[in-house]
Design a protein around this nucleic acid. Structure first.
Length: 296
DNA sequence: TGCAGTGTTGCTTC
DNA sequence: CGAAGCAACACTGC
């Protein structure tokens, strides 16, 4: 299972900006209405139909679809959520093959077999959400509540105010394993299991190293590699070693250039030592036991 | 065959 | 209060 992290959600957001901004929502069908949280589905439907999409944003791993009525759809894809959109220029396109008019599911790709909800637009296109494990959710939120919710998150890696000095200060007070710190969304936004493993491999830092014991060289390396790796992954449209797909169902290619995540037993690209797998905080963690030495 | 693994987040427990 | 563990869920792989 590959969850969407920052690069994957960013890819979906960029697709949606191209495809759905300006569209008016004319109808909503739920094959699993419980995907809408905090509100009965019928109320959600009543409140959302007729609204137009103003903009699409990403914050941490959240997707935010801004609507006309000072509200927004807050979407979290969790681990296996997918957003699929038809191409406005062609109704009988790839997506048209996935979702037939009677809502039956039809696709060669198993990842698109779990459509839970479909939004229909005024130009006859539609946006569907697929989610195998039913962890993903949609909430209708006021701008005010949204801002309160988003304020709980740590800085975005690409925010100009998130400097290496800020990062260093954050780490100094954390006695936790650096991998846990990187993945804690209240501390830092957007990094999950895949990119945490990749960032630490590139930085030659053992995932269990206590954050406050890191040298400033190591902190610099983690900071630089985080930006480099996330940027590279955005350019490659995400990691699809398992189930991530973009809004047309295509895979991202970052997985081809990864060095640690799910590479257990394969030779390290730097020193050929087999990559080791441990469990850290209940999550699979992959690293090179030679390049990423544990600190005494 | 059955059970551990998969991973995000929030809740419970210590 | 911080940290650890687990539930939510459904499918895969050993």
């Amino acid at each position: 299972m590959i969850m969407p992290e920052l690069p994957e959600v960013e890819t979906i957001k960029n697709d949606l900006i191209q495809k759905i901004v300006g569209r008016k929502i004319t109808d909503i069908t739920a094959l699993w209405p419980e995907i809408v949280k905090d509100m009965p589905f019928e109320s959600f439907k009543k409140a959302v139909i007729g609204q137009r999409i103003i903009n699409v944003k990403r914050r941490a791993k959240n997707l935010i679809v801004e609507l006309t009525d000072d509200t927004a759809l807050l979407i979290h894809l969790k681990m296996t959520g997918h957003v699929l959109v038809t191409d406005a220029s062609n109704e009988v396109n790839e997506v048209g093959k996935w979702i037939k008019t009677d809502n039956q599911l039809l696709s060669d790709d198993p990842q698109n077999q779990f459509i839970r909800i479909i939004f229909y637009f005024d130009d006859k296109t539609m946006m569907a959400m697929s989610d195998l494990r039913k962890f993903a959710y949609i909430k209708l939120v006021s701008t005010e509540d949204l801002n309160k919710f988003l304020a709980e998150y740590g800085p975005e890696p690409f925010d100009p105010e998130f400097t290496v000095a800020v990062f260093q200060t954050m780490l100094q007070s954390k006695g936790l394993a650096i991998k846990k710190v990187l993945m804690d969304q209240h501390i830092l936004s957007g990094v999950g299991n895949i990119y945490a493993d990749e960032i630490l491999w590139a930085s030659r830092v053992h995932p269990q190293t206590s954050a406050k014991k890191l040298s400033s060289e190591e902190i610099n390396a983690i900071y630089d590699n985080m930006k480099k790796i996330l940027q590279n992954a955005i350019e490659k449209r995400g990691t699809s070693t398992s189930d991530f797909r973009d809004t047309t169902g295509k895979k991202g290619t970052f997985g081809d250039s990864r060095n640690a995540y799910r590479m257990t037993g394969l030779p390290c690209a730097r020193c050929s030592t087999p990559i080791k797998r441990i469990s850290l905080g209940g999550r699979g963690t992959h690293f090179c036991p030679v390049c990423q030495k544990e600190k005494p």
